Simulated scan of single mutants.
Amino acid sequence: MDEVQPLRISSEPAQLQALEPMLEAVSELVGDVPALLEVAKDIAQTVPHPGEGSTAKLWEVLASVTAVDVAAGRVLEPHLDAVHILSQAGHPEPEGAWGVFAAEGPGLRLEATRDDAGNYLLNGSKPWCSLASQLDGAVVTAHLPGDQGRAAFAVNLKDHGVTCETPQWSSRGLREIPSGTVHFHHVPATILQGPGWYHQRPGFAWGGIGVAACWLGGAVALARDFGGSLSKAADNGRDPDQVALAHLGEIDRLISSSTALLARIAEQIDGHQPGTGPSDWSMAQRARGTVAAAVERIQTLVTQDLGPGPLAFNETYGKRMADLALYVRQHHAMRDDAQLGALVFKGEREW
């Protein structure tokens, strides 16, 4: 099995071949986060932005990198998302490596206030800030005074008022990408548009689908592991039994349907006119839920068939399984389905 085989969503084979040198570079840098951040910066120079006519190509890049290594995809995706957010807000492409910190947590709150000159300052704490100590900047959401809600800000993470906690990361998954709490003390920040813009813009939903493309890439890598194992056994005279073939067939269906859905949604996003067709959020929940379910099912099928051996002795396979299991938990399962169900109930459906 070729570890740097690109993942196709809608591109022609010749277009996908152009990704191979980049994927080779990623393959050689697995585990080296600073080097992967440099690759992410290079990729951001050429990769298309979502909603600009080549959304499927963007997702192919994300999925293909994650198929090489799930953590590498987890490094790439937030940098591209940050670059896209700044572009959507009318800001120039940032220098250095960036992230997006928009999570909220119990007992933690990040607030934006204004000084006498009218400049914004951030004070408080933000949870789940992946790679914060290794990044140059981030798009960060913070609460505005009064009842104005939240807004997104561009922040220099090298400011002396920024303190990055080193989390006690006990998980086997995504060990090179711990997500800790970042504390802000009078940190200057540039507001991006206005209150509510970050969550209301179409790109918020599109970015969520980009994460789903990463999940799909990880699942495809596991499927390739499985297919390669079956082929190796067959070469040694042990053909797959009907159960293994049934699992391989189901995996193929899951990947094919998930890929087709992403291709169709990419088309809808690129041709979308405001006020027509399904909403961006219903498309995002549909894509994320479908891919997350496929990922979990593929993990179950592959691990059942391959058994404990590769989990115990194959570092690449074991890392991939653990990384993907943690990454896909960004999907909130039935709670996200409930959000989609509410939209469907209001008429957000195509059936």
Rank of each mutant, 00 (worst) to 15 (best):
G53V: 02
H84L: 04
W206P: 05
P188V: 00
P202L: 01
G271P: 09
A246L: 14
S231E: 14
Q193S: 10
I9R: 11
I265P: 09
E350P: 01
P106R: 11
L58F: 01
V70I: 03
V100P: 06
W215F: 02
L23N: 03
A342Y: 05
T163M: 12
A287D: 05
D337R: 15
A132G: 08
A293H: 11
S10Q: 11
E12H: 06
D280S: 14
R329G: 01
W98N: 07
L245F: 04
P13S: 08
L306D: 02
E60A: 04
L121G: 06
G207V: 02
R286I: 01
Q5N: 10
Y317A: 07
D239M: 14
G96W: 01
H185Q: 13
A325T: 08
A292H: 15
L340C: 14
V65I: 04
K126T: 12
A132L: 08
G271L: 05
G289S: 11
G218C: 00
P34G: 08
D116P: 07
L86V: 09
L80K: 08
G99R: 00
Q88G: 11
A266F: 00
V155H: 11
L262M: 12
L86P: 12
D116C: 11
A103L: 01
P48W: 03
T113F: 10
R335H: 15
S229F: 03
L29F: 01
S64Y: 09
A132W: 07
Y120G: 09
T113M: 13
G218S: 00
A138V: 09
D239R: 15
A338D: 15
G271Q: 10
G289L: 11
D270P: 04
S179E: 15
K346C: 08
E315P: 09
D115G: 05
A89T: 08
L108W: 00
A102P: 02
A112S: 12
V328S: 05
L301S: 12
E12P: 07
G227E: 03
A18C: 05
L306C: 06
P21N: 10
M283T: 03
A82S: 15
L16C: 06
T55R: 01
M283Q: 12
R286T: 07
A14P: 10
A152K: 05
L36C: 14
F204S: 13
E315S: 14
V140R: 10
A97V: 04
R150I: 00
Q200R: 13
V220T: 01
G318T: 13
G217V: 00
P50N: 02
E165N: 00
